[in-house]
């Protein structure tokens, strides 16, 4: 089973923003939301080998072999011109990586790691890989102390959660908006599955934190903050909420024109949430 592969956009051996402690983070390619505000939109699509990126690559790291994009990481200088030109928000630089490969990376970096986090894209789109990876970590005598976390939009059915949660230690769940129409406008999907997932994960005692992106004029409204407050409190008394501030870094053209979220605005919302009884509200360490 450890030969099962995932389409991986990137692997980090140092991250202090993807769960508790320092984590090995696997960014899986592909997403079922198409968020206007996505800060890494090149993780959304899956490459269809159209070849449009080849002429954009000044380092000659890309070519078509038998109709498939071939990428040479040793030639690449990370200019990201291929990402800019891709018509479907994909990346020609993704790699197919097996569970066994990830285990080897985890072993090499074990002394530095508190755990492993799968992120994306939307990690649960490659559910079988994630479950196999987490099972393998828990079965490995050297690696089993690593906690296994998922960073997700929660758009996953109950049966799938039933398979994933037993091998997962913590979930960071992103809620994009509480008003269904606003959510659809921001993501192209409904939020019913996500809201249900929050309860499922919470009931399994695996909800590490709720994440909420605050966008001026959209998700910072009284109705949205009220929705967040009530929803978080309905999940239980010791819920942890992380507020993220909308910034322009990485986002595509449409959202570049939107106003960014300020520290003053975030601090005001955080104070409101704390006053309402949410014990742990995390705000950004800095603003761009």
């Amino acid at each position: 089973m450890n030969s099962i592969q995932a389409t991986v956009n990137k692997i980090l051996t140092y991250s202090c923003v993807d769960g508790p402690g320092n984590r090995l983070v696997i960014f899986l390619q592909g997403c079922n939301f198409s968020c206007v505000t996505c800060h890494n939109p090149y993780t959304v699509g899956l490459c269809n080998h159209c070849g449009d990126c080849i002429p954009a690559c000044h380092a000659n790291a890309l070519e078509l072999i038998d109709g498939q994009i071939a990428f040479d990481p040793s030639a690449c200088d990370q200019c990201d011109a291929c990402l800019d030109i891709c018509p479907i928000s994909a990346s020609p630089m993704v790699q197919n990586i097996s569970v066994a490969d990830i285990l080897e990376i985890a072993r090499k970096n074990k002394p530095f790691l508190s755990g492993i986090t799968v992120s994306g894209g939307e990690a649960t789109l490659q559910l079988k890989f994630v479950i196999t990876l987490f099972e393998a970590i828990k079965a490995d005598s050297e690696l089993k102390s690593l906690t296994c976390f998922v960073d997700t939009n929660g758009h996953l059915g109950a049966q799938s959660w039933g398979r994933l949660l037993p091998v997962t230690d913590g979930v960071m769940l992103d809620i994009k908006a509480f008003d269904p129409a606003l959510h659809h406008g921001l993501t192209g999907q409904n939020n019913a599955k996500t809201l249900k997932a929050a309860k499922t994960v919470r009931d399994a005692d695996k909800l590490y934190e709720l994440r909420f992106l605050v966008i001026p004029g959209k998700t910072d409204t009284e109705a949205e903050i009220d929705g967040l407050t009530k929803f978080a409190l309905s999940l239980g008394p010791d819920i942890r909420v992380r507020l993220n501030a909308f910034q322009h870094h990485g986002v595509r053209a449409e959202a570049q024109g939107w106003e960014t979220m300020t520290k003053t605005g975030i601090d005001k919302i955080a104070a409101h949430l704390r006053k309402a009884g949410i014990p742990e509200v995390i705000t950004p360490a800095f603003y761009l």
Binding site: C16, V17, G21, N22, R23, I282
Partner: peptide, 11 residues
Amino acid sequence: TIKNNPEAMLQ
């Protein structure tokens, strides 16, 4: 960003 996650410094 480590200010929100001092456990990462420990690790």
